[in-house]
Design a protein around this nucleic acid. Structure first.
Lengths: 239, 239
DNA sequence: CGACATCTTGATCTGGATCAAGCCAGGTGG
DNA sequence: CCACCTGGCTTGATCCAGATCAAGATGTCG
């Protein structure tokens, strides 16, 4: 089966000879995990990183009052905790939002890449930096936008990210999130998520039934979201 | 004068022979910029990164309604837009919150570091990843905490970051931010920042006069902030 | 079949926004 | 030197987006 990470990096720059093989070499053991399973626990000292081969996962922080804040959502091909390679200790846990297939990559092997493949190193670095850009987009959404704008922004983002890995079907995509989960992502209550969602539906911007979302009016949606896709770096550049 | 970046990296891992010199070699031209000056403009295509030698700077996004959201605050020694090295195009502008002294580092020179100094490359990578950890802490603060908790969290963070570079004096630090600026950082109105600040003062957690903040009760402050400093990675580790 | 979780709707409450005004300090120009 | 202006700080009054509480409807699974 193709390595979705390669596809993701190739979308940002062309891989040099040997880099593809180097990536394939380090992805060895893979395993599945169940919905809700915590793949990586907060504050653990890590010596491997997790590559998401299939499914949806989230990085979550839990507050003392029991509230859970999801700080990142990951899709097929994402290196969920590549940052732990240099961080060693992670500031959040990683939880499966659907059943997932994952591979563990030893930090020792990543270190070898930094020793031997500088260009590939820059591309891996890039993917952690894109995660940062997404964090910033969420910060701007939470700090400055209405709940509707925030939700619309999240939908736009997920659509482009899923499209980039070929997981969209025309204007539709599968987003397997419950409304309470959306609340944890957006920092809203599930009740309010429900009402805001109904607003987007009655404005004929989206259809959302079961877990299938259809975007009926991309322009309208991006307008209410104030969405500018530049931060996702979906362009090839020499890096 | 000492290079504050070296001090910052040394706090996270020990530099190998030659790395310090390599860093000093790439920091050549430096210049000052005025308060409010925009050092780097959003969406520009960049071929150099900005090292903050002195002063405070912010990364800011502006929304259509004119609201400004500050998504990161930087202090002396921070590589304000190191991420532009792999990103090439930046999703926010960078503005001086005080008069600053900055140095521009050519991406060509950074590329040379990734070719010749893998360990140093990992440390530079690390600093962009720590920026990401700070973004996540802010996300959790905005999504899950009250305004008072959020402000307390920001104060705790700034105190430790300034302490790490020797810019604190006992329990005091200079934070040259106006209340409207704090509003832009926290996603609150300046009026509300004022009231929340008064709350922290009347709880005897901090004193804040002019731009000098004294922390009167660190335990109490971290408790209202739910502050856990792990995310700042202020520990030496082999990376 | 019961148990459980999600979605939905309504009623009420509240944290923080907005609007408005007064106060003070520093900076400018006459 | 004063008159003025500007921007930040502070306080009060009002408003509203979103939280919370509560309950019913629907659906799924063992």
């Amino acid at each position: 089966m193709p390595n979705p990470l390669i596809q993701k990096l190739e979308a940002r720059d062309t891989l040099l000879p040997g880099e593809r093989e180097a990536l394939e070499r380090i992805v060895v053991r893979s395993r599945t995990c169940r919905f809700g399973e915590i793949m990586v626990r907060e504050d653990e000292h890590l010596n491997e990183s997790t590559l998401l081969l299939q499914g949806f996962a989230a990085r979550a922080k839990t507050l003392r009052n029991g509230k859970r804040q999801i700080v990142a959502v990951h899709v097929t091909g994402d290196f969920v905790d590549l940052h732990s390679f240099v961080l060693k200790r992670i500031d959040h846990s990683i939880v499966a939002l659907t059943p997932c297939r994952i591979a563990n990559v030893a930090h020792r092997d990543l270190e070898a890449i930094t020793e031997n493949f500088p260009h590939l190193t820059r591309l891996l670095w890039l993917s952690t930096v894109i995660d940062g850009a997404i964090h910033r987009a969420w910060l701007a959404a939470m700090g400055g936008r209405s709940a509707a704008g925030q939700l619309a922004h999240f939908i736009c983002e997920m659509f482009l990210r899923l499209k980039a890995i070929g997981h969209t079907d025309g204007n539709s995509m599968v987003l397997p999130f419950t409304q309470p989960e959306l609340g944890d992502i957006l920092g809203l209550s599930s009740v309010h998520v429900n009402r805001v969602l109904q607003g987007l539906r009655s404005d004929n911007l989206i259809r959302w039934q079961d877990q299938s979302i259809t975007i009926l009016d991309w322009d309208g949606l991006t307008r209410t979201a104030e969405f500018d896709p530049t931060y996702l770096s979906l362009q090839k550049e020499p890096r």
